[in-house]
Write a protein that binds this DNA or RNA. Structure first.
Lengths: 234, 234
DNA sequence: CGCCGGGGTTACAAGTCCGTGACATGGCTT
DNA sequence: AAGCCATGTCACGGACTTGTAACCCCGGCG
């Protein structure tokens, strides 16, 4: 997979109780995050802008400027408005109020929390932001052939075609690289994921099964003699 | 946000009365849309597949293949199933019938309509599709299966079904992502919250228990061999 | 015109995947 | 302490998938 060089996510923790701060910091560092802290609203806002953390853990009760206010301000500033926020609160009852206010936190944790729960929520939220957009289209159409990757669905002229997992993967790889010829070796590597052991004729067999099931739409699958296969658009 | 270069939304208008067609076309072009037309069901289906418009305005009364039928066919073909449809009809009374049929139109307009109303509805529908999907509904219904998340309640044909916490979570994750296949790994990550330690076969067992408890409604839970599970609506 | 090699086609044995029932564990209630 | 229930794991068996080998066809080339 094309995993981009992993960097350590940066987290800003805001809480005015030293004890709570320490617990949070310890657990997050343990889980492999880079942690900065702030113990009041003003410092939080300043650090958020300076550090641009990947996530902010914000206690609801703060002296001076309270958590809700900080949250709103963070959301208002374009520099920080995209940063996910997890609200932390001692009172479960507060949660409802906060949720009711819909002021833009992305998740909530109540004290006391288990370290596991905390880390899970953090990870979830970070993942959601990171995974985001991918480059390859998830749905493709060529004439009457439709390929819908998330639904794992292929249809020809509106009629659904049932493909096995391997056939589906083969078709996707070819369609995504349409125009370019793929050697049997390349296909084995990318569809079968690095099984150097299997015969290259295996590709042929799967191409045949794929063509059979696609019927009319098999015309998109082109054999280049002596080289491999390719997907042609017209 | 990664807004793709804005293009002019393409709208397909289907109506067999030349006058009505002209009025619709004029108003939509005036509002800045690219408009194509069709005057019978067959042409509509063909053009929809060819042009892949962003929205379809469909008159209920058409010669040969009527609007309802066209609507159903558009929905059935994966190529066009995601395109929003606005039904147009001369008789207000027809609306109820159509709504009752729940056949998948997204909005309804009755003749005579004000140009302003028409454009508003079009704009609304286009906006809804452009801005990411609507946030997750808290209560869902599919045929006789009702899932109420806040109340933690599931019923089939009116009869309450007792699910354990895990089963419930599994069901709602699948239902919220209905249509899209979820791999065992994805389910472990999101239902079990990232316990990499547990066996992927555990998912199977829980699916089995879920299906058993759902009885009839288990038909919504689909196995995609070699890939994972998915929730299907029909 | 016949040979040759690459690829289409068919058949089948081995492998894989999933539904199913059984069981161990461990937390919670009584 | 006993019992119950939720949950994770395992083993079995049937159905489907997949890799391979054998055979056939066809086009290119001498």
């Amino acid at each position: 997979m094309l995993t981009p060089a992993r960097i350590m996510p940066k987290i800003l923790v805001v809480d005015d109780e030293p004890d709570a701060l320490e617990v949070l910091e310890f657990n997050l560092k343990n889980a492999g995050y880079e942690v900065s802290t702030a113990d009041d609203g003003e410092a939080a806002l300043k650090k958020a802008r300076q550090l641009l953390p990947d996530l902010i853990l914000l206690d609801l009760m703060l002296p001076e400027v309270d958590g809700l206010e900080v949250c709103k301000l963070l959301r208002r500033d374009p520099a920080t408005s995209g940063i996910p926020i997890i609200m932390v609160t001692a009172k479960a009852a507060e949660i409802d109020r906060v949720v009711g206010l819909e002021l833009g936190a992305d998740d909530y944790v109540t004290k006391p929390f288990s370290p596991r729960e905390l880390v899970l929520r953090v990870r979830n939220l970070l993942r959601r932001r990171t995974e985001g957009e991918d480059d390859k289209p998830q749905k493709m159409q060529f004439g009457d052939l439709v390929i819908d990757i998330p639904r794992h669905l292929v249809s020809v002229a509106g009629a659904r075609v049932d493909l096995t997992a391997t056939e589906f993967k083969l078709l996707i790889i070819l369609a995504q690289r349409r125009g370019r010829v793929q050697s049997r070796e390349a296909l084995l590597r990318d569809v079968w994921e690095y099984d150097n052991l299997i015969d290259t004729r295996t590709v042929d067999t799967h191409m045949r099964r794929l063509r059979e099931k696609l019927g009319d739409a098999a015309r998109y699958l082109d054999t280049v003699r002596g080289v491999g296969y390719r997907f042609i658009e017209n």
